[in-house]
Design a protein around this nucleic acid. Sequence first.
DNA 1: GCCAACGTTGGC
DNA 2: GCCAACGTTGGC
Length: 155
Amino acid sequence: MAWWLMKSEPDVYGIHHLQAEGTTLWDGIRNYQARNFMRAMEIGDRAFFYHSNASPPGIVGLMEVVETGLVDPSQFDAASKYFDPASKPEAPRWDCVRLAYRATFPTMLSLEALREAFSVEDLPVVRRGNRLSILPVSDASAARLFRLLGVEPDA
DNA sequence: GCCAACGTTGGC
DNA sequence: GCCAACGTTGGC
């Protein structure tokens, strides 16, 4: 079981949207590195939900991967902002996973707090200018995050 | 293959 | 609104 960190802007899709919906398709990813991380995900993997472009930005909750290897439908939708005219249905360029809501943490772990606790090597999201919206999290860093959050990993 | 221009993300 | 980071595009 692997750990991940996934960013979303709360104004667009925040932890509360996911809590209301139960599960969501993590579509619209148009960065090859982030896509490749999604391709590496397995059912049962856990992902920290990170609010980007927020004040303050930070980790707010936990998700679980419940479906993998799904074709991102938005790439074929001409009305979508994620439409990719270069992607063909017989060879889809973008895929995604389905995530289920697991928890909203009692307190958020702000980027500022993350920077105090982690080096860039241990948690690359703290690197200034980091634009990657999906990042792997090591087992050790995940354990440390839960300690900082004061919650049990299986909560 | 190089690299400048450009676009996007995201913190502040 | 600004700017750092950095991926992508296109001319050559």
